[in-house]
Amino acid sequence: MLTGAFTSRRDSFSLLVEIEASPEEIVAVVGPNGAGKSTLLRTLAGLHPIEAGHVRVDRETWEDAAAGVRLPAEHRSVGYVPQSGLLFPHLTALENVAFGVGGDEAAAQEALERLELGPYAAAMPESLSGGQTQLVAFARALVRQPVLLLLDEPMASVDVAHRSAIRRLIRRELRDRRGYRLLVTHDPVEAAALADRVVVMEGGRITQVGTLDDLRTHPRSRYAAELVGLNFFRGQAVGGVVTAEGGGTLISAAAPDGPVLVTVHPRAVSVYSSQPSGSPRNVWHCTIAAIEPSLDQVRIHLTGPIDLIAEVTPAGASPFVENQPVWVSVKASEVTTYEG
């Protein structure tokens, strides 16, 4: 078991984290920029000291502030793959990989070949693409067979055209081994492709831990909801009626009484230029704050008693302009509520 319960500080930023991982699973740490994800990885790697608490891996104490124990990075069995790869610029790809195994070039060559990089063994880092750099850095970490593997945004510097191929290689290598495997990402697609469990970090704190399915159906923060593409707000429910924090009310038959979290899929939000007839439930008067086109749909940002985003087809969006007063409806059956 890997357990970490600690606080650490970086300039004015403070991190307070409790994390657990088993050697059987791959954990993705997701969170907005500046949430402390990289600091978490650096702390586990031994590159950043903790202020209080401990880090234990299997039966070994890597760090314990109270006992004054701090294992330096070079004595921890970690493999750390930083965001930009960070290869040693004066060494070839092969020498980079061999650096951590006492110059064992046979082992390094094998590690490169596993990642389909055999032909690049003699290449200098400056001549490698972003994806190749990332894979060499990955091989450099893997070849040491570390107990704890840490990947920081493995796809960040990879060209879009090569993402899926590289993701496939990383996925295979991560799946093919036991041991603690943590990766930081802000891409839900990457988390879904690579991880079994997701840890959401915001502002230096962990706000949610669960499977990707938990995150998708029951996000517990606005960030997590946005990540999986849902409208989200907090409210109080009484007898199936939810009063949102901003004041609007919404009917949700299944809502448990008490504080609740509410999600609504943007495609379940309909926008009308005049008051809709028929079903009178969950209809509000709103204003269009912004219209944001994307590839195959248009996102309409609405402000009113409850702020929402509606997702419609380009044709469906054509009658609307920004600042236009509109009517909005949400089917009660499309509102998901759960205890907050």
């Binding site: 650096r42 790697a45 031994g46 590159l47 330096p72 990075a73 070079e74 921890r76 970690v78 493999g79 750390y80 930083p82 960070l86 040693f88 650096f99 951590g100 450099r140 970490a141 040491r144």
Partner: peptide, 15 residues
């Protein structure tokens, strides 16, 4: 010197 490279070297077992 890029300190991050020294950090990487540390995680690769270099004292």
């Amino acid at each position: 010197v890029n300190r991050e490279l020294e950090d990487i070297a540390a995680t690769l077992g270099a004292g």
